[in-house]
Protein backbone atom coordinates (compact mmCIF):
# COMPACT_ATOMS: atom_id res chain seq x y z
CA UNK A 1 0.00 0.00 0.00
CA UNK A 2 1.30 3.41 -1.00
CA UNK A 3 -0.23 6.39 0.69
CA UNK A 4 0.41 10.07 0.05
CA UNK A 5 -0.79 12.46 2.75
CA UNK A 6 -0.97 16.18 2.09
CA UNK A 7 2.17 15.74 0.01
CA UNK A 8 3.69 18.97 -1.31
CA UNK A 9 6.75 20.00 -3.22
CA UNK A 10 7.97 23.48 -3.92
CA UNK A 11 11.31 23.69 -5.69
CA UNK A 12 13.95 26.23 -4.68
CA UNK A 13 13.27 29.70 -6.04
CA UNK A 14 9.79 28.72 -7.27
CA UNK A 15 6.80 30.86 -6.33
CA UNK A 16 4.23 28.06 -6.34
CA UNK A 17 4.04 24.38 -5.41
CA UNK A 18 4.97 21.96 -8.16
CA UNK A 19 2.91 19.32 -6.37
CA UNK A 20 0.19 19.35 -3.83
CA UNK A 21 -1.29 19.23 -1.45
CA UNK A 22 -1.88 15.71 -2.69
CA UNK A 23 -3.70 12.82 -1.03
CA UNK A 24 -3.66 9.43 -2.69
CA UNK A 25 -3.93 5.77 -1.70
CA UNK A 26 -2.77 2.93 -3.88
CA UNK A 27 -3.88 -0.41 -2.40
CA UNK A 28 -1.66 -3.49 -2.68
CA UNK A 29 -1.74 -5.13 -6.09
CA UNK A 30 -3.14 -2.11 -7.88
CA UNK A 31 -1.74 -0.67 -11.06
CA UNK A 32 -2.41 3.05 -10.98
CA UNK A 33 -1.85 5.40 -13.90
CA UNK A 34 -0.91 8.95 -13.07
CA UNK A 35 -2.06 11.03 -16.00
CA UNK A 36 -1.71 14.70 -16.75
CA UNK A 37 -0.28 17.23 -19.15
CA UNK A 38 3.40 18.16 -19.09
CA UNK A 39 4.31 20.04 -15.94
CA UNK A 40 1.34 18.72 -13.96
CA UNK A 41 3.68 17.36 -11.26
CA UNK A 42 3.13 13.65 -11.95
CA UNK A 43 6.81 12.90 -12.42
CA UNK A 44 7.78 14.87 -9.31
CA UNK A 45 5.14 12.94 -7.35
CA UNK A 46 6.63 9.65 -8.51
CA UNK A 47 10.12 10.78 -7.55
CA UNK A 48 8.95 11.66 -4.04
CA UNK A 49 7.77 8.09 -3.48
CA UNK A 50 11.34 6.76 -3.65
CA UNK A 51 12.88 9.94 -2.25
CA UNK A 52 14.77 10.93 -5.37
CA UNK A 53 12.96 14.18 -4.63
CA UNK A 54 12.33 15.17 -1.01
CA UNK A 55 8.89 16.63 -0.29
CA UNK A 56 8.51 20.14 1.14
CA UNK A 57 5.65 19.01 3.34
CA UNK A 58 3.34 16.07 3.94
CA UNK A 59 4.31 12.43 3.97
CA UNK A 60 4.55 9.25 1.97
CA UNK A 61 3.68 6.00 3.72
CA UNK A 62 4.51 2.58 2.39
CA UNK A 63 2.67 -0.24 4.15
CA UNK A 64 1.78 2.25 6.84
CA UNK A 65 5.35 3.36 7.53
CA UNK A 66 6.45 6.94 6.88
CA UNK A 67 9.38 6.72 4.44
CA UNK A 68 10.99 9.96 5.63
CA UNK A 69 12.42 8.01 8.57
CA UNK A 70 13.79 5.22 6.39
CA UNK A 71 17.23 4.90 4.88
CA UNK A 72 16.68 6.11 1.29
CA UNK A 73 19.01 3.46 -0.12
CA UNK A 74 17.14 0.59 1.55
CA UNK A 75 13.83 2.18 0.59
CA UNK A 76 14.81 2.39 -3.09
CA UNK A 77 15.91 -1.22 -3.10
CA UNK A 78 12.35 -2.22 -2.32
CA UNK A 79 11.03 -0.09 -5.17
CA UNK A 80 11.74 -0.78 -8.83
CA UNK A 81 12.08 2.44 -10.80
CA UNK A 82 11.94 2.71 -14.58
CA UNK A 83 13.07 6.04 -15.95
CA UNK A 84 11.72 8.03 -18.82
CA UNK A 85 15.01 7.96 -20.67
CA UNK A 86 15.60 4.23 -20.58
CA UNK A 87 18.89 4.67 -18.84
CA UNK A 88 20.69 1.38 -19.31
CA UNK A 89 24.33 2.04 -18.54
CA UNK A 90 26.02 2.26 -21.91
CA UNK A 91 29.33 0.69 -20.92
CA UNK A 92 27.80 -2.40 -19.30
CA UNK A 93 26.42 -5.55 -20.84
CA UNK A 94 22.73 -6.32 -20.37
CA UNK A 95 23.62 -8.87 -17.68
CA UNK A 96 25.78 -6.35 -15.79
CA UNK A 97 23.05 -3.74 -16.02
CA UNK A 98 20.52 -6.10 -14.50
CA UNK A 99 22.92 -7.52 -11.94
CA UNK A 100 24.43 -4.29 -10.66
CA UNK A 101 22.33 -3.94 -7.52
CA UNK A 102 22.40 -7.67 -6.52
CA UNK A 103 26.15 -7.76 -7.09
CA UNK A 104 26.76 -4.65 -4.99
CA UNK A 105 24.64 -6.35 -2.33
CA UNK A 106 27.02 -9.30 -2.63
CA UNK A 107 24.51 -11.93 -3.59
CA UNK A 108 26.23 -15.25 -4.35
CA UNK A 109 27.46 -15.38 -7.92
CA UNK A 110 25.30 -18.28 -9.09
CA UNK A 111 22.23 -16.72 -7.54
CA UNK A 112 22.92 -13.49 -9.44
CA UNK A 113 23.37 -15.40 -12.70
CA UNK A 114 20.14 -17.31 -12.14
CA UNK A 115 18.32 -14.08 -11.32
CA UNK A 116 19.57 -12.39 -14.50
CA UNK A 117 18.46 -15.33 -16.66
CA UNK A 118 15.12 -15.57 -14.91
CA UNK A 119 14.44 -11.86 -15.39
CA UNK A 120 15.50 -11.92 -19.04
CA UNK A 121 13.06 -14.77 -19.63
CA UNK A 122 10.36 -12.85 -17.80
CA UNK A 123 10.76 -9.90 -20.16
CA UNK A 124 11.04 -12.22 -23.18
CA UNK A 125 14.67 -11.71 -24.02
CA UNK A 126 16.50 -15.00 -24.64
CA UNK A 127 19.29 -15.05 -22.02
CA UNK A 128 21.69 -16.96 -24.27
CA UNK A 129 21.47 -14.19 -26.85
CA UNK A 130 21.02 -11.05 -24.81
CA UNK A 131 23.06 -11.58 -21.64
CA UNK A 132 26.29 -10.38 -23.20
CA UNK A 133 24.84 -7.74 -25.53
CA UNK A 134 25.66 -4.09 -25.00
CA UNK A 135 22.82 -1.55 -24.85
CA UNK A 136 23.75 -0.01 -28.20
CA UNK A 137 23.21 -3.41 -29.83
CA UNK A 138 19.57 -3.49 -28.74
CA UNK A 139 16.44 -1.97 -30.26
CA UNK A 140 14.49 0.56 -28.22
CA UNK A 141 11.97 -2.04 -27.14
CA UNK A 142 14.65 -4.53 -26.13
CA UNK A 143 16.39 -1.85 -24.11
CA UNK A 144 13.23 -1.05 -22.25
CA UNK A 145 12.68 -4.77 -21.58
CA UNK A 146 16.17 -4.94 -20.10
CA UNK A 147 15.45 -1.82 -18.05
CA UNK A 148 12.33 -3.52 -16.65
CA UNK A 149 14.40 -6.55 -15.77
CA UNK A 150 16.93 -4.31 -14.03
CA UNK A 151 14.24 -2.54 -12.03
CA UNK A 152 12.96 -5.94 -10.87
CA UNK A 153 16.39 -7.32 -9.97
CA UNK A 154 16.32 -6.65 -6.23
CA UNK A 155 12.84 -8.20 -5.93
CA UNK A 156 10.90 -5.01 -5.29
CA UNK A 157 7.24 -5.16 -4.33
CA UNK A 158 6.55 -1.76 -5.81
CA UNK A 159 7.20 -0.53 -9.33
CA UNK A 160 7.32 3.13 -10.27
CA UNK A 161 7.52 3.96 -13.94
CA UNK A 162 8.03 7.39 -15.41
CA UNK A 163 6.67 7.35 -18.96
CA UNK A 164 8.38 4.03 -19.61
CA UNK A 165 6.97 3.61 -23.10
CA UNK A 166 7.32 7.21 -24.22
CA UNK A 167 10.32 6.71 -26.46
CA UNK A 168 9.04 3.59 -28.22
CA UNK A 169 7.26 3.11 -31.51
CA UNK A 170 3.50 2.47 -31.17
CA UNK A 171 3.68 -1.27 -31.93
CA UNK A 172 6.40 -1.99 -29.39
CA UNK A 173 4.62 0.29 -26.99
CA UNK A 174 1.38 -1.69 -27.06
CA UNK A 175 3.18 -4.99 -26.83
CA UNK A 176 5.34 -3.93 -23.90
CA UNK A 177 2.59 -2.29 -21.91
CA UNK A 178 0.45 -5.44 -22.22
CA UNK A 179 3.41 -7.51 -21.11
CA UNK A 180 4.02 -5.25 -18.19
CA UNK A 181 0.44 -5.76 -17.07
CA UNK A 182 1.09 -9.51 -17.06
CA UNK A 183 4.31 -9.11 -15.08
CA UNK A 184 2.58 -6.81 -12.62
CA UNK A 185 -0.02 -9.49 -11.93
CA UNK A 186 2.36 -12.42 -11.96
CA UNK A 187 4.66 -10.82 -9.38
CA UNK A 188 1.87 -9.29 -7.34
CA UNK A 189 3.36 -5.82 -7.62
CA UNK A 190 1.87 -2.51 -6.60
CA UNK A 191 2.66 -0.19 -9.50
CA UNK A 192 2.34 3.44 -10.48
CA UNK A 193 2.87 4.40 -14.07
CA UNK A 194 3.19 8.02 -15.15
CA UNK A 195 1.92 8.71 -18.63
CA UNK A 196 0.36 11.49 -20.65
CA UNK A 197 -1.31 8.99 -22.93
CA UNK A 198 -4.88 8.40 -21.79
CA UNK A 199 -5.33 5.43 -24.13
CA UNK A 200 -2.39 3.71 -22.51
CA UNK A 201 -3.80 4.48 -19.08
CA UNK A 202 -7.21 3.04 -20.06
CA UNK A 203 -5.70 -0.15 -21.43
CA UNK A 204 -3.23 -0.77 -18.66
CA UNK A 205 -4.37 0.59 -15.34
CA UNK A 206 -6.86 -0.46 -12.69
CA UNK A 207 -7.48 3.15 -11.76
CA UNK A 208 -6.48 6.45 -13.27
CA UNK A 209 -5.46 9.53 -11.31
CA UNK A 210 -5.71 12.74 -13.31
CA UNK A 211 -3.38 15.54 -12.22
CA UNK A 212 -3.35 19.17 -13.16
CA UNK A 213 -1.11 21.93 -11.80
CA UNK A 214 0.23 19.67 -9.07
CA UNK A 215 -3.15 18.61 -7.76
CA UNK A 216 -5.27 15.54 -8.09
CA UNK A 217 -8.36 16.41 -10.09
CA UNK A 218 -10.03 13.02 -10.10
CA UNK A 219 -9.24 9.40 -9.45
CA UNK A 220 -11.22 6.34 -10.50
CA UNK A 221 -11.60 3.53 -12.99
CA UNK A 222 -11.72 4.33 -16.70
CA UNK A 223 -15.44 3.65 -16.62
CA UNK A 224 -16.02 6.02 -13.72
CA UNK A 225 -14.00 8.80 -15.29
CA UNK A 226 -15.85 8.46 -18.57
CA UNK A 227 -19.23 8.30 -16.91
CA UNK A 228 -18.73 11.15 -14.51
CA UNK A 229 -15.77 13.41 -15.23
CA UNK A 230 -15.13 15.86 -12.40
CA UNK A 231 -14.64 18.86 -14.66
CA UNK A 232 -14.10 20.00 -18.22
CA UNK A 233 -10.39 19.17 -18.09
CA UNK A 234 -11.02 15.55 -17.14
CA UNK A 235 -13.83 15.34 -19.66
CA UNK A 236 -11.45 16.43 -22.43
CA UNK A 237 -8.72 14.11 -21.24
CA UNK A 238 -10.93 11.02 -21.11
CA UNK A 239 -12.67 11.81 -24.37
CA UNK A 240 -9.37 11.94 -26.20
CA UNK A 241 -9.08 8.19 -26.96
CA UNK A 242 -12.63 8.11 -28.31
CA UNK A 243 -12.21 11.28 -30.33
CA UNK A 244 -9.09 9.88 -31.87
CA UNK A 245 -10.79 6.58 -32.60
CA UNK A 246 -13.66 8.44 -34.23
CA UNK A 247 -11.30 10.58 -36.29
CA UNK A 248 -9.46 7.45 -37.31
CA UNK A 249 -12.70 5.77 -38.35
CA UNK A 250 -13.65 8.81 -40.39
CA UNK A 251 -10.26 8.93 -42.02
CA UNK A 252 -10.45 5.24 -42.88
CA UNK A 253 -14.02 5.54 -44.08
CA UNK A 254 -13.33 8.32 -46.46
CA UNK A 255 -12.85 7.25 -50.07
CA UNK A 256 -9.19 7.39 -50.98
Amino acid sequence: MIELRQLRKRFDHADHDAVGPLDLRVPPGELLALVGTSGSGKSTTLHMINRLVEPSAGSVLIDGIDISGQDPVALRRGIGFVFQAIGLFAHMSVADNIAITPRLLRWPRDEVAARVDGLLELVHLDPAIYRARMPHQLSGGQRQRAAFARALAARPRIMLMDEPFGALDPLTRDELSAEFRTIHEKLGLTSIIVTHDMTEAFLLADRIAVMRAGRLVQIGTARALLADPADEFVRQMVRMPRLRAARLARAMGEPG
Binding site: N50, V73, R76, G78, F81, F83, G87, F89, T101, L104
Partner: peptide
Protein backbone atom coordinates in the same frame (compact mmCIF):
# COMPACT_ATOMS: atom_id res chain seq x y z
CA UNK B 1 23.80 9.28 -14.71
CA UNK B 2 23.84 9.52 -10.95
CA UNK B 3 20.05 9.59 -10.58
CA UNK B 4 19.62 6.29 -12.40
CA UNK B 5 22.13 4.66 -10.09
CA UNK B 6 20.45 6.13 -7.03
CA UNK B 7 17.07 4.98 -8.28
CA UNK B 8 18.30 1.38 -8.31
CA UNK B 9 18.88 1.48 -4.58
CA UNK B 10 22.64 1.78 -4.88
Amino acid sequence: NVEHVEGLGI
